[in-house]
């Protein structure tokens, strides 16, 4: 994927210790927010777009990343003024 725009934020601290959250022994990221604009999303359903992002993060998920907030859009889907 060649994103036109990409923002990634570590939000792990916001969720530390909530029910079901597992603190990682290695101190790694558990909660991630990803905003990505890429041509790869054009013509795809929301589920398909999220699957593309999830697939890129498969290794991190296996290592303990457990929540990913995703805002995935194709360039022409950007809201006016964004």
């Amino acid at each position: 994927m060649t994103p036109a725009a990409l923002e990634v934020e570590d939000e792990s601290a916001l969720h530390a210790g909530h029910g079901g959250a597992t603190r990682r022994a290695d101190g790694g990221i558990t909660h991630l927010r990803v905003r990505v604009v890429a041509q790869a999303f054009a013509g795809k359903s929301r589920v398909e777009c999220h699957r593309l992002v999830n697939a890129l993060l498969a290794q991190e998920i296996a290592e303990g990343l457990h929540a990913i907030a995703i805002d995935a859009k194709a360039p022409e889907q950007k809201a006016p003024g964004e």
């Binding site: 929301r46 589920v47 999220h50 699957r51 457990h66 929540a67 990913i68 907030a69 995703i70």
Partner: peptide
């Protein structure tokens, strides 16, 4: 559903999505 996170919403047997997708929809 080959979907790594929870929550997951299903309607009439079809996987709709997780939190972000449900909120956007």
């Amino acid at each position: 559903s080959s979907w790594p996170t929870i929550p997951q919403l299903y309607v009439k047997g079809e996987f709709i999505g997780g939190c972000d997708i449900v909120r956007e929809m």
